[in-house]
Amino acid sequence: MNPSAHEIVIVDDEAKPAQVIAEYLQREGFRTAHLLDGLGAVAYVRQHAPSVVILDVMLPGLDGIEVCRAVRQFSMVPIIMLTARVGEADRIQGLDIGADDYLCKPVSPREIVARVRAQLRRASGPVALAQHTHGFVVEEAAQRIRWEGKVLPLSQVEYRLFKTLLAQPGRIFEREALLNAKDLLGRAVNDRSVDSHIKNIRKKIKPYTGDTEVIFSVYGVGYRFGDG
């Protein structure tokens, strides 16, 4: 594991404890960022896609529980929650809404570094083969995509197309970029086949997403996933 390849975001309105944690992480080679409020944290994670988020529960504007819940709408970044609350119910709540780890203050900065490393090891193992995007989970090893635990009935070509769109929400993909020789398993393709495959994907995911549109046509260009 190369620490310098990972940015660790610390979200805590108390500057001194956050600075100490940041210094320990930096000594280990990690890059760090410090945010003071919850609203800024959600926007930062969306824009910068950090490797781990260390999230204090008590935050101004938007508390840590709400931040975690909001982040889980678009990202599965590992989240380590910090809190002065020691009750079992509080820990369970944090884990239930999507936190990966939960530590009660005061906590040793060395332990936080160890927990960060543990989350990164987990993310670089087999679980890393599952990429999460807006409720869809791409399981690379199994060559399939799930929606809320249910496997979508996609063909191999449809799987590869949808995976490409999911990888970069908001990006407009030209048809040629979506369907190259590799993606289509060596089959001859044309613009009409692109449209046909996208139509089939939309049809197959509709029973799961309902009336919510997730794949958008861009006239004269191609397709994109999500609003971007």
Score class of each variant (00 low, 15 high):
residue 179 L to A: 08
residue 13 D to N: 06
residue 107 V to Q: 02
residue 8 I to L: 05
residue 173 F to A: 05
residue 26 Q to H: 02
residue 88 E to A: 08
residue 216 F to C: 05
residue 134 H to Y: 08
residue 223 Y to W: 01
residue 115 R to T: 14
residue 186 G to I: 11
residue 184 L to Y: 08
residue 159 Y to R: 08
residue 5 A to P: 09
residue 110 R to L: 15
residue 36 L to M: 10
residue 208 Y to D: 06
residue 87 G to V: 05
residue 126 P to F: 10
residue 59 L to F: 01
residue 155 S to R: 09
residue 6 H to G: 11
residue 40 G to K: 10
residue 84 A to R: 09
residue 64 G to D: 07
residue 19 Q to R: 10
residue 48 H to V: 07
residue 12 D to L: 00
residue 85 R to C: 04
residue 88 E to M: 12
residue 197 H to Y: 14
residue 27 R to E: 14
residue 3 P to I: 14
residue 48 H to M: 04
residue 92 I to V: 14
residue 66 E to R: 15
residue 223 Y to I: 01
residue 79 I to S: 02
residue 86 V to L: 10
residue 78 P to F: 03
residue 163 K to P: 09
residue 44 Y to M: 04
residue 43 A to T: 15
residue 96 D to H: 10
residue 67 V to R: 00
residue 186 G to W: 07
residue 89 A to Q: 12
residue 109 P to E: 04
residue 66 E to K: 14
residue 155 S to T: 15
residue 166 L to M: 11
residue 57 V to D: 00
residue 91 R to W: 12
residue 115 R to K: 15
residue 85 R to F: 06
residue 81 M to V: 11
residue 3 P to W: 10
residue 65 I to F: 15
residue 162 F to A: 13
residue 27 R to C: 13
residue 84 A to D: 09
residue 195 D to R: 15
residue 143 Q to H: 07
residue 82 L to D: 01
residue 161 L to G: 13
residue 205 I to D: 09
residue 180 N to R: 07
residue 84 A to Y: 07
residue 9 V to L: 03
residue 19 Q to N: 04
residue 100 D to H: 07
residue 131 Q to V: 13
residue 146 R to D: 10
residue 194 V to P: 05
residue 103 L to M: 01
residue 55 L to R: 03
residue 94 G to K: 00
residue 225 F to S: 05
residue 148 E to M: 12
residue 44 Y to I: 05
residue 199 K to E: 09
residue 136 F to P: 02
residue 78 P to T: 09
residue 221 V to D: 03
residue 214 V to S: 01
residue 61 G to A: 04
residue 29 G to R: 09
residue 75 S to T: 06
residue 157 V to M: 03
residue 165 L to V: 08
residue 4 S to V: 14
residue 23 E to W: 08
residue 82 L to K: 01
residue 191 D to L: 08
residue 108 S to T: 14
residue 63 D to C: 12
residue 145 I to R: 04
residue 86 V to A: 15
residue 216 F to L: 07
residue 189 V to S: 05
residue 51 S to A: 15
residue 45 V to I: 04
residue 23 E to Y: 06
residue 8 I to E: 06
residue 88 E to W: 05
residue 117 R to Y: 12
residue 103 L to E: 00
residue 181 A to C: 07
residue 187 R to C: 05
residue 53 V to N: 09
residue 89 A to W: 11
residue 183 D to A: 14
residue 200 N to T: 07
residue 21 I to P: 02
residue 165 L to I: 08
residue 14 E to T: 12
residue 201 I to C: 13
residue 44 Y to T: 10
residue 73 Q to R: 15
